[in-house]
Amino acid sequence: MAKKYLHIHRLRRVYVWELPVRIYHWLNAAVIIALIATGFFISDPLALMSNKEASNQFTMGWFRYIHFIAAYLFFFNFIFRLYWGFVGNKYANWRQFIPISGRFFKEMWTVFKIDILMLKKNGKQQDHLSVGHNAMAGFIYFLTFIMFLVQCLTGFGLYAGTSNWWLPKLFAWVPAVFGGDILTRQIHHWSMWFFILFAVIHVYLVFYHDYVEGRGEISSMGGGWKFIEEDVFEKNKHHTPNPEK
């Protein structure tokens, strides 16, 4: 009986996230979690009760050490992602993130109506959206990248004073802008909450899209594949020979 109104989707495999993007993603997720965890400890260390000599312990030392290692990984990974925004495939391209075209804003509005206001479009509860990030997601990642930058600037700015290497030293001007380390450090601390809130919402939304769209959203960051309805594919594909080939 169900058969009567069932439209069986034919899905076509699209390679959306190339391996470098996937590696970037999980390395990024891992170091951000490490940075948040160690950052919390640095800002408010637990009360340790110990009879050992101070010289036999290095608890805070280790937390800071891990924070700084993770910070370097985070920084270089971030730089790499920026680079990949120019050489990667179209779903990794920088244009996916920066709202410059009218189309971008229109799509953001559509996403807002469908996914947040739960409105229908053309009588459907789900409109087909882009295969890569939708425009709203892209824009949120754009803000996220800005926060990456803020965190790198303030973090390396704080780090510069105690480092002898030229790279962190490049950031020595940052605390001067904020009038010193005290405020810089507070900005660094406040920004952490952006990452916490982002991660929670982001993971929820990934599950949400997987659930309502059924196109393999969650696993896409694993294998790189997403799936697109055959009819949509036909409608949107290049009819002239692919200029990218």
Partner: peptide, 30 residues
């Protein structure tokens, strides 16, 4: 944020019930 997510999850299951149901039936059919 947690509360908003919970609210959104509930709203999704109500507002998009037909869509979800259709996907589910399609999957069951297969």
């Amino acid at each position: 944020t947690g509360a908003a997510i919970a609210g959104h999850a509930i709203a999704t299951n109500i507002g998009k019930s037909k869509l979800i149901q259709k996907n589910e039936e399609e999957g069951r059919e297969s």
